[in-house]
Simulated scan of single mutants.
Amino acid sequence: MIYVDADACPVKDEALRVAVRHDLEIAFVSNAWMRLPEGPNVQRVIVAEGADAADDWIAERIGKGDIAITADIPLASRCLKAGAQALGPTGKPFTDASIGMALAMRDLKQHLRETGESRGFNASFTPKDRSRFLEALELAVQRAKRGQA
């Protein structure tokens, strides 16, 4: 199963394409109704409003062999602890080896924004990011199918 943290996710169509190719269920989880890709194995989940409602819904259900697509580092950490794989929308995999540093950098950047030291600009999403994501998701699905997730 692929779980997509759908709020502000730029690769929903790509995730669906990979899910369909491999006949996997995919759940798009969001805090509000939005236009989402459709397909035979698509589940749309709208959770109650709240800062972490979508994250909680995913974290409560994800497990070994599943894949989460999220830019939310704390959610990625929760998914890894549940035995799942986690990918960012640029194709960067979150791993047990990298999640600690990712959480620390997230906290540092948040502190710098709060103190005015940084304005917190995000890099724009590029076609290269989209391509890298497709490749990374394909590899994650292959690992899950081999039981290596």
Score class of each variant (00 low, 15 high):
23 D>Q: 15
106 R>A: 08
96 D>C: 02
22 H>D: 14
4 V>F: 00
103 L>C: 05
11 V>F: 05
63 G>T: 15
55 D>A: 15
98 S>A: 14
49 E>R: 08
136 A>E: 00
61 R>I: 01
130 R>E: 05
117 E>S: 12
71 A>S: 15
76 A>Y: 04
122 N>V: 06
147 G>A: 11
15 A>T: 11
94 F>I: 04
119 R>W: 07
8 A>H: 11
49 E>D: 15
82 A>L: 09
138 E>W: 10
97 A>N: 07
84 A>I: 02
61 R>D: 12
6 A>R: 06
47 V>D: 02
11 V>C: 03
57 W>A: 14
109 K>H: 13
100 G>H: 04
135 E>I: 02
21 R>T: 05
19 A>P: 04
26 I>F: 07
85 Q>Y: 10
68 A>I: 10
105 M>R: 08
46 I>P: 00
48 A>L: 14
50 G>M: 10
78 R>L: 12
141 V>G: 05
83 G>Q: 10
134 L>I: 09
108 L>F: 11
118 S>N: 11
133 F>W: 06
106 R>G: 03
89 P>I: 09
147 G>P: 05
18 V>Q: 03
108 L>D: 01
73 I>P: 05
130 R>N: 07
41 N>L: 08
35 R>T: 12
56 D>E: 12
129 D>M: 07
3 Y>W: 15
30 S>M: 14
148 Q>C: 09
10 P>R: 00
42 V>G: 06
97 A>T: 11
44 R>P: 02
60 E>H: 12
144 A>H: 07
121 F>T: 07
45 V>I: 14
131 S>R: 05
144 A>W: 03
64 K>L: 09
14 E>T: 14
145 K>Y: 02
130 R>H: 04
4 V>D: 01
121 F>P: 04
125 F>P: 08
132 R>L: 00
77 S>M: 10
19 A>Q: 03
58 I>W: 00
100 G>Y: 05
16 L>P: 04
